[in-house]
Design a protein around this nucleic acid. Sequence first.
DNA 1: CATGCTGGCCAAACCGCTTTGAAATTCCCG
DNA 2: CGGGAATTTCAAAGCGGTTTGGCCAGCATG
Lengths: 342, 342
Amino acid sequence: MNLKQLSDILGLSPTTVSRALNGYPEVSEETRQRVLAAARAHNYRPSARAKALATGRSMAIGHVMPISSQHEMMNPVFADFVAGAAEVYAREGYEMLLSLVRDDDEERSYRELAARGSVDGIIVHAPRRGERRIRLLHELGLPFVVHGRASDERADYNWVDVNNRRAFRRATRFLLDLGHRRIALVNGIETMDFAIRRRAGYLEALAEAGVPADPRLMRADEMTEVYGHDSAREMLALEAPPTAFLVSSMITAIGVRRAAEEVGLRLGRDVSIVTHDDDLSYFRNGGDEPIFTATRSSVRDAGRIAAEVLIGVIRNPGAAPVHRMLEAELIVGQSTGPAPAG
Amino acid sequence: MNLKQLSDILGLSPTTVSRALNGYPEVSEETRQRVLAAARAHNYRPSARAKALATGRSMAIGHVMPISSQHEMMNPVFADFVAGAAEVYAREGYEMLLSLVRDDDEERSYRELAARGSVDGIIVHAPRRGERRIRLLHELGLPFVVHGRASDERADYNWVDVNNRRAFRRATRFLLDLGHRRIALVNGIETMDFAIRRRAGYLEALAEAGVPADPRLMRADEMTEVYGHDSAREMLALEAPPTAFLVSSMITAIGVRRAAEEVGLRLGRDVSIVTHDDDLSYFRNGGDEPIFTATRSSVRDAGRIAAEVLIGVIRNPGAAPVHRMLEAELIVGQSTGPAPAG
DNA sequence: CATGCTGGCCAAACCGCTTTGAAATTCCCG
DNA sequence: CGGGAATTTCAAAGCGGTTTGGCCAGCATG
């Protein structure tokens, strides 16, 4: 069933039917009702393809996830972010296009996306140090919102981000206040912008407390469980092991906990863990009493917000860049306690 | 830059340029080279919108993820499956459209997807008991592949699935062979097809060994960490607690492990765990020595295979339904050992 | 009563590509 | 060298919508 057929049935021109369906005023209320009823009755939906061509808008938003050519990892946080964004798209009539692109042909992919016109806007994921996509997207004139920030990009752009620096500074200070002095940082890969900021927050807090940073207590890698485990095992074997760990992800924190338990340390007594918690739907940090003390910020909310911002930008292209800084809350759970004496 | 402009530059008709770009034989090799060079030089890409309208194919594949209206959970396994599928799409020139649809307006969503013609085919995720989407999609005439199976659908259809029944029967038998008699099942929600099959495999193995199934040792819920923990805590508090757990997901198994450790049981000695392992990129089951004994089957591979099957179906609509049964391997790790005496 | 609006509708052009059917050119062979 | 076949190119008609500009009837205005 296409527009022509529907209009034939109704004895109206396609013009009138189109206007009736799209809420234009130049059609009598009576006709509009007749058209709407017929459309429903015949289960008519305008072809997305034709509509996109005619209007010049595809009503789709692209999520481009960089896949590192070295580490083939699918970011688990991505799933929840996308779920949040998808909610908004469904509500606003947009579709979601997902591309995973290897970082070695990133530029080509973005250019193609723009030239082919399959999306009206883009969410940029996982900004890194020396991020080049922002300049590229500006040049391409495609509306976009960055989830996170690109530290060394001087131009202004739309972003939605957690205040990672402040969160990790607070978390570190919290551990310092508990008497910890040897605090390990088990971070994400430090080419990722969020990891750079977390490290900065951690170092700031240490500096403020006059505690020297120890390179042997700082790790950065992909945030898997095994990485958490192995890092913790090695650090706990040092002659002066850490008494606390600051970890960048719940999953990695699970690994750290496993390591601690393997060497007979009890969490919250012998060793403390604070982790960042993205509030993932399948990995809720306990029920009433959180398992881990954590800096929590829902990545699903971030997805929702980013989608809303992007739709706003698409609708109102001239507006000034939007920045949404989300603050993480510090949740005190069972994984922290005073530094053990000695 | 559109086709018309490019053809004007070249002094050729749009027809010829189109044919040259799409590899039709009716154009001289010399002209083709000239056209290709000009296209590259001017960075020309055909508009996806126009192409879709003209060809009737959108070169996009829809992934429809049901979101339960009760439990708002984003399946973490989904991310890796999608990553696998995306690889194939990138290679084959398809785009991926993601819809999360609440199960209460599922039928509407699918009808809309079909009528609007924004995708050429669909991957159906998370089939459940009493699955109605298969009949619907047949009716709509949209090519599709199911990830999993729908037990009570008698019509034939394309599917890619893990042999869940066999995997769980093997795992149960493995535990039985180690002397365990009180084996708990910590399953996914048992309206999900995969969970039904896993339960069947578990029950079969028990029956074969003449061990009666104990309803107090069988749980089914969303596979979160907290669920694993709470179920295990409760079961371990029974007067006759289980000596082994068979768990449906690594994440849930982590919760079970946490519960075991809380009550002072050591894994592989006091209590055993076998889990299903989807081989998630961020949750590799240890390095050389697996943490958990597990039935392993890469969901990323499943995504790849499902995508390939679907593309095959789209290209060759008449073919007989394709079934791809993936076998899980049983990996022996550190989480299992002989049943404790007594 | 001529004029100017206005509300309701329509024909036709257009979005940017593919594809059909035909025309123009080249080639081959008797 | 002429004529049919093969090669190369093109004009025009879609695909299924939106949108521009115009038509017509009915009504108020001067």
